[in-house]
């Protein structure tokens, strides 16, 4: 009997955790997806800034516009309470995010501003991209420094 109860409890715990993680599948995919969109477009601009690919004003502008578009996404629904790296698998979002929401939001605001500055200069010439990109990269790091679990 005792064994049965222990087994039942263990099963319930496992099922419970699975259901719990399932609840966060969409928001976790969505937030990771938006960062992937950022990375792809940063890659286009970075290649031009480093001279690895030829500068193309239109492509640069489109990439910068896409980055700005990501920063316009309302972040709240993508970061539900309990979807941190201590609670679920498949995320590197530190619990500290939820303990310091005003700081996180202010840092996301810095990303938004840096993206807009990049958007303003991306179409004007190759040499303008590097510094604007560097500034934007700084805002990525500012968050990753404290809020992303190391790999």
């Amino acid at each position: 009997m005792k064994t049965f109860i222990a087994l039942a409890a263990a099963t319930a715990t496992v099922l419970g955790t699975a259901a719990y993680a399932q609840d966060f599948k969409m928001p976790v995919q969505a937030r990771q997806g938006q960062f992937a969109v950022l990375a792809i477009n940063l890659g286009i601009l970075g290649g031009m800034a480093r001279g690895a690919t030829e500068y193309d004003a239109e492509a640069a502008q489109a990439a910068a516009d896409s980055i700005v578009a990501v920063t316009m996404i309302n972040q709240g629904p993508l970061w539900p309470e309990g979807s941190d790296s201590m609670s679920i698998d498949g995320t590197r979002a530190e619990p500290a995010i939820w303990e310091n929401l005003p700081d996180v939001l202010s840092k996301f605001g810095d990303l938004t501003m840096a993206a807009q500055e990049l958007q303003a200069v991306a179409g004007t010439g190759q040499e303008a991209i590097g510094p604007a990109l560097g500034k934007l990269g700084g805002t990525c790091k500012a968050c990753h420094d404290n809020y992303r679990t190391p790999e």
Binding site: L42, G46, L133, G134, G138, C140, K141, H144, R148, P150
Partner: peptide, 27 residues
């Protein structure tokens, strides 16, 4: 060298954890 300057990996992920602080210095 570009990673040390900007924190961007070749996949344009960006440095995290203590390495973000190291990039701050190298930049």
């Amino acid at each position: 060298a570009y990673y040390l300057e900007t924190g961007f990996t070749p996949e344009y992920d960006s440095a995290g954890g203590h390495m973000a602080a190291v990039i701050d210095n190298f930049s």
